[in-house]
Design a protein around this nucleic acid. Structure first.
Lengths: 116, 116
DNA sequence: CAGAATCCTTTACGATACTG
DNA sequence: CAGTATCGTAAAGGATTCTG
């Protein structure tokens, strides 16, 4: 794919936006392990507030990547899971994960070299 | 656990962080076509301000993904290019680009379905 | 031309308290 | 327990101006 093609096609930019915030990719990442309730997802993730988790899940739902299932119980029970579309994103995300496993130390070394 | 502490321990998060802003992935993408001066890079990208381009390039340089070459001339000339480490990131970015071309329409359809 | 400095707006994120 | 409302801080990004 050429740069011109990338720039000419707004879908590519729109797709990059799907990963261009702190929590979207992380939430997708942990959902690969199966559906989960909010409280449990927060344990999988670590360091995310309930409010931001809800916002992130609703954003992913809006984009068709995550499905929300609410059950009429008391206390309420809700589960989130990847949609078929969301699951297609796992392969590209895996590519990043594999890259991180292979080159993460190089990035950290560069940061240290540059006074980080 | 703070986000920073989690990032320090999780290479996947480190990789996501490299792409978790608007311009990092786009700048990496256009640098695949070869080294470029800032003004020319802005033409390749479109819609990025000079200030934000500089900030993005310096951020990528800090992480060892981009190299900066300044020549003592008048008017000054500067070129940026991918490092070897930066080039290793092109494959994962390609994987996501391919996903965008295959599934971008599905995302747009979901957004429309949800009143976007 | 590169890019630093300044000012401004928007948004992301977090903490807390509250509702059903 | 899930989710909303509110408040506050911090950072991203844009526009403009100035300097070497």
């Amino acid at each position: 794919m050429t740069t011109d093609a990338f720039l000419a096609d707004c879908r590519a930019r729109l797709a990059f936006d799907l990963l261009s915030n702190t929590w979207n990719p992380v939430v997708l990442w942990v959902l690969r392990d199966g559906p989960g309730r909010p409280r449990e997802l927060r344990k999988r993730i670590g360091g995310i507030s309930p409010k931001v988790l809800t916002e992130t899940l609703r954003r992913l739902e809006f984009n068709g990547l995550v499905a929300r299932h609410a059950y009429a119980e008391s206390p309420p029970r809700v589960e989130y899971e990847l949609t078929d579309l969301g699951r297609t994103l796992l392969a590209p995300i895996d590519a990043f994960g594999a890259w991180a496993f292979e080159h993460g130390d190089d990035v950290i070394a560069a940061q240290d070299r540059n006074g980080g």
